[in-house]
Design a protein around this nucleic acid. Structure first.
Lengths: 233, 233
DNA sequence: GTGCCCTTGTGAGCGTGTGAACAAGCGGGG
DNA sequence: CCCCGCTTGTTCACACGCTCACAAGGGCAC
């Protein structure tokens, strides 16, 4: 009895988990083209990773390949969807109906990939009652009631940074246990809640760092050579 | 002569680079509050990382701290901004004026953090000539001309996946050397071009994986305990 | 039935990232 | 002038992820 979770004890590394969705997308493409099987090499190329890494990643799911042939596309798709929990839809709630919230609510990709937007909430009375993409905006105070009627496990925070922590707390209180945070701030959540963040400005700043180094090098090259360094194709 | 780049040879690990923007944000907050210095411990707490890691990360920039006191906020801000290349603005171009492109063009955070949107381009004739946030939408064919007049080093791709690779190629041809890709597809670019990607559906699928494991465990727990597991605080 | 070719699955080595622990060193108090 | 407390900067050990290389093993031709 104490070993209840033994079957799922097969621990999948975080790095692998973050690549599974890439494989899934590639497999869907291949399945659409009617290919019955796919080799790790081809899958690697399509997903932009190393072939050995693909094989190791897939081996965490089990031995679903056939030596000398490759992986059965349909079967692998099924197993991977099961592992990723994509055999049924996950209803999500989006908090914050500003620019970003609007765009996210309108984004068809969520529904297509099994994450229908079940509710929109905001604190600003002026937007309550309006509709976005056919979904009515409700007040965040109603969150517990909303979560009670529909099963909502995933929340998306698209509010200003100043409101993000409070929104997160209220989501968690309402039963949400996975949060995707777009607000540029650090959220603290209990350990059993999964948290991922996407920070657009940070992404640009990281690019800026490498860009800075590139142009700094160019400047040095100019001073040194003065004449010209051809753009090197 | 051959050692031209020795001064900047101090190589900063990728993991550190991706944390620098977090520190920067925390420092800006602290500076606003008028604190003259900050300890690694406090900075760590604000940025959501380990204190030892903060010290190690900052040491890559140089020895800018004072033992027994902490780091001078203003000075560290200056050094970090310089290292991240944020001493001047970086003009960015956004390709694709759909839902996401719209939201990005309207997002004030970009301009505030030194990444003004200098141009919007699209391939759809119906949106050419319209304005978003005061910025006119121009045809993507004009990209070389746009890039020639303004210095544009960073491009953001917010097009459908099917168009992303071609847009990337055209950006690079026009002189863009850093790309932030929102399209759910793998882009191939020459090695001297920096590429980062943000994939919203993938983020949700990763959350789904862990959520799946949680609910699977819950199911086991219910069968085992049946009574109830209190939400633990 | 046998042998060959092809692709998987995995073991080992290497590099990078992380966290703890501690010596070095600055500032303030006496 | 000296000592003590505090915080940095660095060293060390460990864990994790990545890549290579190769043995294991299924399918196909003959």
């Amino acid at each position: 009895m104490a070993n209840g979770g033994k079957r799922q004890a097969r621990k999948i590394p975080e790095a692998t988990v973050s690549r599974l969705p890439l494989y899934l997308r590639s497999l869907l493409e291949v399945a659409n083209d009617g290919m019955p099987t796919i080799s790790s090499e081809r899958l690697a190329e399509m997903s932009g990773v190393n072939a050995a890494k693909v094989r190791k990643d897939l081996s965490y799911l089990g031995s679903y390949g056939t030596r000398g042939v490759g992986y059965d596309v349909e079967y692998l798709l099924f197993q991977m969807s099961r592992e990723l929990g994509l055999t049924h839809d996950w209803h999500v709630v989006i908090a914050g109906v500003g620019n970003l919230g609007h765009a996210l609510a309108n984004y068809a990709g969520f529904h297509e990939r099994g994450f229908p937007v079940a509710a929109l909430v905001d604190a600003d009375r002026r937007v309550i009652g309006t509709e976005v993409n056919g979904i009515p905006v409700r007040h965040i105070d109603e969150l517990p009631a909303i979560a009670a009627t529909q099963q909502i496990a995933i929340g998306i925070i698209a509010t200003p940074a100043s409101a993000a922590q409070e929104v997160a707390d209220r989501m968690i209180a309402a039963g949400v246990s996975s949060i995707l945070n777009f607000a540029p701030t650090i959220l603290s959540v209990p350990p059993e809640v999964s948290l991922r963040k996407v920070d657009l400005a940070v992404e640009l700043q990281i690019l800026s760092f490498y860009q800075q180094r590139k142009t700094a090098t160019d400047r040095v090259a100019h001073v040194a050579a003065d004449a010209a360094a051809p753009p090197a194709t």
